[in-house]
């Protein structure tokens, strides 16, 4: 049995989540509801919960503000939010769980399952670290990201990623240190969150970091050689855009 706290400034949201969690009453017990970060801070210190359902927007503050007030992170966090692209992006970079409001019962079930079966507080605090790190430097250009893997996740400096290569529903991440990480996400997932970084999808199976492009070899679509020595085909339809991005 896990003890949970719901932090949300709107009563109907608390009620809704409470109702939805009724189905999981065997595994999760709600011990407290809080409407402000001060109240929540107090409750967390006193009750030592296992899980916190945390709304991103809390009146004039954010859920992140609450976390920064706490000296240590010894609980799981599930963020809830209605519509906030920046926050969503931040969650993706840190591979944190989040629920979109109105909360779909399937989504909640998935989140609860994950918490019950794969609990790892160490991971969570690291993920929160990444989240804070990225927030501090401005949400738009995060420096680190948590890459979900089959086993768990791996923290990687974005600037150290040379390229991604898709392999069915998995993606191989190649870093500058020749480390290869297999992510449990599609290439499209990475393309979406790294689009505003210097990454470019040159092929159905390849997403590359343009900073590592060494050469472009002419051809129908052509090839690029990267600084790690790899030679990667460019799709015909991506050639023009690629050359534009490389400013040839």
């Amino acid at each position: 049995m896990l003890n949970a706290i719901i932090v949300d400034d709107e009563q109907h949201c608390i009620d809704r989540l409470t109702e939805l969690l009724q189905r999981h009453k065997d595994s999760i017990k709600i011990i407290s509801n809080c409407k402000t970060i001060e109240e929540a801070e107090q409750q967390i210190k006193v009750t030592q919960p296992d899980v916190v359902f945390l709304d991103v927007h809390l009146n004039n503050a954010t859920g992140f503000d609450l976390l920064s007030l706490l000296p240590k992170m010894d609980f799981e966090v599930v963020f809830t939010t209605s519509y906030d692209t920046y926050a969503l992006k931040a969650f993706k970079f840190s591979a944190l769980d989040y629920l979109l409001k109105p909360i779909a019962s399937e989504d909640l079930e998935n989140a609860v399952q994950k918490i019950v079966h794969n609990r790892s507080l160490k991971e969570t605090s690291q993920k929160i670290d990444v989240l804070f790190h990225n927030f501090k430097d401005g949400i738009v250009q995060p420096k680190r990201m948590a890459i979900p893997t089959v086993e768990g996740f791996t923290m990687i400096e974005i600037n150290n990623i040379v390229r991604f290569q898709s392999d069915a529903n998995y993606t191989h991440v190649h870093t500058v240190t020749n480390k290869k990480v297999t992510a449990a996400k599609t290439l499209k997932y990475f393309e979406e969150i790294l689009g505003s970084h210097n990454f470019f999808r040159i092929h159905k199976s390849h997403l590359i970091n343009l900073s590592f492009v060494d050469n472009y070899i002419k051809g129908k679509g052509g090839y690029v050689t990267l600084l790690d020595g790899s030679k990667i085909e460019v799709a015909v339809r991506r050639k023009e855009e690629l050359l534009k991005r490389l400013a040839f």
Binding site: Y83, T85, L100, K101, P102, I103, A104, S105
Partner: peptide
């Protein structure tokens, strides 16, 4: 009502995105 609402929210979000 719930099912409808969740789907409606999801569709609205997707359309906006």
């Amino acid at each position: 009502a719930n099912e409808y609402l969740v789907k409606f929210a999801k569709l609205t979000r997707s359309i906006l995105e």
